[in-house]
């Protein structure tokens, strides 16, 4: 009886202010969507339109003088498939290694009773700022005989301090301390508690880290450029960069290269590269998304 009364009141109350709120959310989300979506659409149409017209600002909402030169240039290059395969290897192996190293470390650093944690944290954070520079790092990698190996492309940045901090913050704030105390009473060690309780409860942050690390490996161009010179090991981004440069009109004006050189299509490659390199990794997102949806979904359904 009283329960329904409360419920009615709340429904009544919500129907007025909440409706405005819901409308505001809807309008804002539509606006944001449009602002984000238009330039993305632009990339798509620019990748199939005459580049001269794109440069002149004549291509606005629909593609003009459609041609698929950009995609042809990319997809007919045999190296691209090798690049995809390499990248997938680096993403899968690299991300797995990242997670195996990051999550336990994040857990250890989240234990408030672990007195050394501030010191260890400083040990990590310091390296976000001070680095010996590229050359000493290169020489270290070289001393380990890892230059131009696949290993270095998997191992490099095995742990990212930024991600470590995110994971630690998450574990610390969303897993109640009572659980640990209860687990200790049950005779759990840190290992078992971590495996049995922390990991299952951290699905959301694990998904985020997987996404962060996977995208990092996917996009990684710089480390592959510096630490690998073997064409066979080249990841997708390196291959795409080569194709892109190959197709770009060359500004030095030393005579020749620009000569009648596919000007009307050259820039297509620039846009097509974005699409070719992004589509596969975009497909990963929905799978990951559902893990950090769940909690919210339950809340929403109940409300």
């Amino acid at each position: 009886m009283t329960k329904t009364a409360v419920k009615n009141r709340s429904v009544k109350c919500s129907s007025w202010s909440d409706r405005i709120f819901g409308a505001a959310v809807m309008i804002l989300s539509i606006m944001i969507f449009l602002i984000i979506a238009y330039p993305l659409w632009f990339v798509v149409i620019a990748s199939i339109s005459n580049s001269n017209l794109v440069n002149l600002g004549k291509v606005t909402f629909w593609p003009k003088d459609i041609r698929f030169y950009g995609y042809e240039q990319i997809l007919q290059d045999a190296r691209i498939w090798k690049g995809y395969a390499n990248t997938i290897l680096y993403v899968v192996a690299g991300t797995a290694l990242n997670m195996v190293i990051t999550m336990p470390a994040a857990y250890a650093l989240s234990r408030k009773d672990f007195k050394a944690r501030n010191g260890v944290m400083f040990y990590f954070v310091f390296t976000m700022f001070f680095s010996g520079g590229l050359v000493p790092t290169y020489m270290t990698v070289s001393a380990l005989h890892l230059i131009s190996t696949r290993t270095i492309l998997v191992v490099f940045v095995a742990i990212n301090t930024y991600n470590l901090i995110i994971a630690r913050t998450f574990i610390q704030n969303s897993i109640p301390d009572d659980l640990y105390e209860a687990a200790v009473l049950d005779g759990c060690s840190h290992f078992t508690y971590f495996m049995k309780v922390v990991l299952p409860l951290s699905k959301a942050v694990i998904s985020v880290l997987i996404l962060y690390y996977a995208v990092f490996h996917w996009n990684d161009y710089f480390n592959a450029l510096i630490y690998n010179s073997k064409q066979d090991n080249a990841p997708l981004q390196i291959v795409l960069r080569d194709i892109l440069l190959l197709n770009q009109a060359f500004a030095s004006g030393n005579g020749g290269v620009q000569g009648g050189y596919g000007q009307s299509s050259a820039d297509q490659v620039k846009y097509a590269v974005i699409i070719v390199s992004t589509l596969p990794i975009l497909c990963v997102y929905p799978f990951i998304q559902k893990y950090f949806e769940k909690g919210v979904m339950i809340g929403a359904v109940k409300g």
């Binding site: 336990p104 470390a105 857990y107 250890a108 260890v120 040990y123 095995a158 742990i159 840190h190």
Partner: peptide, 12 residues
Amino acid sequence: MLLPGIIYIFVF
């Protein structure tokens, strides 16, 4: 649990 991370950071 911290060891792998500590070693990696130390070396690289």
